[in-house]
């Protein structure tokens, strides 16, 4: 009886985590491997591995860093794609939606700036790119990024700082448009 209750609670927490982080893990994996179908399979694998951990008696207190770390390891373990991934071509080519609020003109400007940001991220060295993506797109604190990547928290913080500096350099001086 006790185990039934544990099972039910475990299932509930697991599915809540999926509802909450499924899309984020999918996005993270898609940007890492540039293949939507495989990213979807690996997203599922990330969650099944998380469940396997639970069923073996593991306790996940913070799902978000745990899932990202699992997904990160999965990419290293299962799918080591060598070619670099262009966020801009990935998002444009595959028809992912970009923010579409506002009037047409404003939307066009927003799209142009979004493209500019994506291209800027693309040009970042991989040393900084993963860290910047995890920090600003996946919204993970340096401490969690350190756990996911196996780097020290200090190194992560330094790379965030330098990565942002480099991104600013890449994006260049003032843009002529206002957002």
């Amino acid at each position: 009886m006790e185990n039934t209750s544990q099972q039910e609670e475990g299932e509930k927490a697991f599915l809540v985590a999926y509802d909450q982080f499924g899309d984020a893990i999918f996005r993270f994996l898609t940007m890492k491997i540039a293949d939507r179908e495989i990213a979807r399979d690996l997203t599922q694998e990330t969650f099944t591995r998380a469940w396997d951990y639970c069923r073996e008696g593991g306790v996940i207190r913070e799902w978000k860093p745990f899932l990202y770390r699992t997904a990160y390891n999965l990419v290293v373990d299962v799918y080591r794609k060598k070619k670099s991934v262009s966020l801009d071509s990935l998002i444009d080519d595959e028809g992912f939606a970009v923010s579409d609020d506002g009037a047409d003109k404003r939307q066009t400007i927003v799209r142009a700036e979004m493209t500019r940001v994506r291209k800027g991220i693309d040009r970042l060295d991989s040393t900084y790119r993963d860290i910047i993506l995890l920090r600003y797109i996946e919204d993970l604190p340096p401490k969690d990024i350190a756990r996911i990547t196996g780097l020290s928290e200090n190194v992560v913080s330094v790379r965030i700082h330098r990565g942002v500096q480099k991104l600013r350099e890449i994006l260049g001086p003032d843009e002529k448009t206002n957002l």
């Binding site: 999918f26 979807r40 992912f96 700036e113």
Partner: peptide, 9 residues
């Protein structure tokens, strides 16, 4: 950056 990289199932 999130707006620039909006990807979802």
């Amino acid at each position: 950056m999130q707006a620039a990289t909006k990807i979802a199932m």
